[in-house]
Amino acid sequence: MAFGLLATADADLMEIIGLSLRVSLTALLISCLIGLPLGALVATCRFRGRSALLVLMNALMGLPPVVVGLIVYLYLSRSGPLGWMQLLYTPTAMIIAQTILITPIIAALSRQILEDMHEEYSEQFRSMNVPWRAEIAALLWDGRFSLMTVALAGFGRSIAEVGAVIIVGGNIDHLTRVMTTAIALETSKGDLPLALALGLVLLVIALAVNALAFVMRQAASKFAYG
């Protein structure tokens, strides 16, 4: 039956999968736009409080999704400071929560990669008088393969998490129901075929993410770009 749902591309099922991908990919995009420059900044600059920032970034990598969900909930709830925006129980709220969840991952992991490369390049770049911004751009481009595996790690975490999206999204049918929250609900309701079908899709996505990361690493070492 689970396979039947997948084979017939059941409309509800497709809607749920589509929303999951939309939320997690949007969160990933925003996280990369914030996390990569932040990682590059911390990797290349020496400033006061840098070590503290490093510790904070690493600590935030392990943020429990439910805690993030709770905090975002408090901000977005009607009586919260951002309550007037009326975002609670919308896909936007889910994107915000997942962005908070994975930005530290993108920033911390990319920082490590970029710092190693910066150490390797910095004297050469100094000799060539490469301006700071061009240097950052070069590091981001030259680290493209490794950074893509970082993005994949972030995506893997966001697509699979349930704690944050269920709190701020509310698992509303046709509105904020994503794969993980649907699985949780359908399992508790006893509708196992739908839960299993979604579980299978999640599994395939996880495998695909890992396979893609593997391909990236292979490509990187093939060109000696690692």
Binding site: Y121, E123, S127, M128, N129, W141, D142, F223, A224
Partner: peptide, 20 residues
């Protein structure tokens, strides 16, 4: 200064090449 260095170049013992 940076201005002076702009008219100079250096080749290091181990070349540092970009991943390109």
């Amino acid at each position: 200064s940076e201005d002076v260095r702009r008219r100079q170049a250096m080749v290091f013992q181990t070349p540092v090449l970009l991943r390109r």
